[in-house]
Every structure is written in C-alpha cells, then in structure tokens.
Amino acid sequence: MASLSIARADALGPVRLFARLLSAALLLIFCLPAHYLWRAARQASPWPRLFLGGVARIFGAAVEIRGLPLKRDVFFIANHLSWMDILVMAGTTGTAFVAKDDVARTPVVGWLARLNNTVFVARTDRRSVAAQVDAVRAAVEAHQPITIFPEGTTGDGGGILPFKASLLAVLSPPPRAMRVQPVLIDYGHAMAEIAWVGDEPGGENAARILKRRGRFGARLTFLEPFDPAACADRKAIAAEARHRIAEALASAS
C-alpha cells in the first residue's frame, strides 16, 4: 500500500506543477496593470513585492521572519541556496537584487527581474568591475533596499561559501548614511529538496520544487545591522557579514 501511495503522489506532481504555474500567471495578470498604473502616477509601486511574495506562497514557501528587517537605506547581504531566495526576500522586504547578467537573457524571468529593478552584472568580466560598482551605486541612490549574494553561487545549506567582495566596493565608503544587514536564509528540513547545487539544470530544480507536495519552511533571520563606514574596506565588510551569518547558521544547527 505504501508503494501505491507514493506512485499516486508522484503521478500528481505534474498536476501540482501546472496548477502552481497557472496560479502564478493569474497573479501576474492581476498585478501587472496595477504596477503600471502606479508607475504612470510616478508613485513607488508595491506590486512587484506583492507579486513575488504571492508566488513564493503559491510555490509552497511558508515564510518565517526572525529579527527586524530594515525598510530603507539598507544593503542586505545573504547566503544563497536557491532561486526561491529571491521570491522570499523580495516578498518580505521589497528588495531589488544584484544578479548575473545571464538572468537578464532568461525568457520571462529576465523581464520580471527588470520590473523589480534588478541590477545585472557580468561577474566573469573583471574589466567591467568599476562599471558594475557604478550600476549598484545608482541603484542604492534610489533608496530601495538592495540584496547581494556574495557567495556568487548557491550552496547546500551546510555552511557558508567564501564571499566575493568586489561589488561591496560600493559601500567603501557608502554613498550616504546606510546600514548593512546580514541575512541567514534557511529551508530547514526541506533544504535538500530546495537547494540548487552541483550541475543540476535549473529547469529540473524548478520542476522538483513545483511538483513537491505541501508547504516548506523558509526562515529569514535578519541579523544586527552594522555601519559599513566603520569597516576598513570592502573585504572587511564582506568578512563581517560572513562572520555574522556563519555564527547564526551554527546557532541554528
């Protein structure tokens, strides 16, 4: 009987995938006209945040917030586990992101990322670092929270990978009075199913999550902010943020 139940559950996976994608599409159809109306009125639009947070819930995330996220003049630095990180972080804080430029070329995803003011950078082109820092600085000037995943890739949740500090040059010195707030992202018991690691194709990872039964925990722990101006340079900022996130991960284990 157990094997029959598993077979039935697996058979329903494609149904869950289709239902979740359809629900996300319907939510987009509802949110998009309102977003453009807000933009036409030159008002800050809440709709990207509402859409991305709604999609996170549709895809199964039950977000738990620990700590107090800053609302503006903040640069979030977080560990990176999955593309779900973007949905849960944006839905919680309204943050924009710094992302690899190949995201911009991804159908639909790139377009949605632009709606949320994503800053695209070519991380493999060291010659363009100065231009990338300028692009991030311009985004910071808009007062929208910005999130960066300085590991540069996704991990399995068992530890924190080394941080790449190049884009943190935007904070050394910061363009104005602002704070860096480290964030620990954790999917708890569902980590092995949610984390995107190794050479797994993105489509397979997304399909696995969307076919998954039930909901999964997505805990965001917002740690104590610090003043980047008090750090000697970008490497010191990266080291301080990584230390705090690693400590929080060790405490949560």
Rank of each mutant, 00 (worst) to 15 (best):
A56T: 14
A56V: 14
F59A: 13
G60W: 11
V63Y: 09
I65D: 02
G67D: 13
L68F: 01
L68K: 15
P69Q: 13
L70V: 12
L70Y: 12
K71S: 15
R72H: 14
R72A: 15
F76M: 06
A78W: 02
N79P: 01
L81R: 08
W83D: 00
D85Y: 10
I86E: 02
V88R: 05
M89H: 04
T92H: 04
T92P: 13
G94P: 09
G94S: 10
T95L: 01
F97S: 08
A99Y: 05
A99C: 10
A99N: 09
K100F: 01
D101G: 03
D102S: 12
V103T: 04
V103A: 07
A104G: 12
T106S: 07
T106E: 01
P107C: 09
W111L: 10
L112G: 10
L112T: 06
L112C: 08
A113R: 08
R114Y: 00
N117C: 00
T118Q: 00
T118E: 00
V119Q: 13
V119I: 15
V119L: 11
V119P: 11
V121P: 04
R123T: 02
R123H: 07
R126N: 03
A131P: 00
A135P: 03
V136M: 14
V136F: 04
A138K: 07
V140H: 02
H143G: 01
I146A: 05
T147C: 12
F149D: 00
E151I: 07
T153H: 00
G155E: 08
G157R: 13
G158S: 15
G159I: 07
P162H: 09
K164P: 00
L167W: 10
A169W: 02
A169M: 09
V170M: 12
L171F: 02
P173Q: 03
P174I: 10
P175D: 01
R176C: 04
A177K: 13
A177D: 15
A177W: 04
R179N: 04
R179V: 03
R179D: 02
